[in-house]
């Protein structure tokens, strides 16, 4: 989700199968890259993320819980994936989104529930109207 300067929220849409788990998704993306470039081996990716290769392997196999938000964001950048998508697959929400939601949790919960079944093309842009009051 991208917050533009003018207050309009444009939603970049990624469709990810509901049953995709974080580890399997990361592994499939990494292996696809590794087929073309050697630098995407478990060892080399883990090295760039400054984590143990065995830990990354366990994450990919779903043997341990997904890593921290910071590591997921770095992993997403390394694999050229969207951080919000990886965070969502890991059951997490980024700090910036969390702070936005925490300001008005009820409103955003209601908004997201309303958007649940709306097709992607209909939620590319959320328009904010200037509110007219009593005068």
């Amino acid at each position: 989700m991208q917050k533009c300067l003018d207050g309009v929220v444009s939603i970049k849409y990624y469709t990810v199968p509901m049953n995709t788990d974080f580890g399997r998704y990361v592994r499939s993306k990494r292996e696809a890259l590794h087929e073309k470039r050697a630098e995407y081996s478990v060892r080399k990716v883990a090295g760039r993320l400054q984590i143990q290769p065995s830990y990354l392997s366990k994450v990919e196999r779903g043997e341990v819980a997904p890593p921290s938000e910071d590591t997921i964001v770095r992993l997403a950048r390394d694999l050229n994936e969207d951080p919000d998508v990886l965070l969502a697959l890991a059951g997490k929400v980024s700090k910036d989104l969390r702070s936005v939601i925490m300001k008005r949790p009820k409103l955003f919960a209601e908004l997201i529930r309303q958007l649940k079944d709306v097709p992607d093309h209909s939620i590319l842009r959320v328009v904010r109207e200037v509110r007219d009051g009593n005068w």
């Binding site: 300067l5 003018d6 207050g7 309009v8 328009v127 904010r128 109207e129 200037v130």
Partner: peptide, 10 residues
Amino acid sequence: MIELKNNSLT
């Protein structure tokens, strides 16, 4: 409908 965009009212 009125929107606030780029310091303008549309």
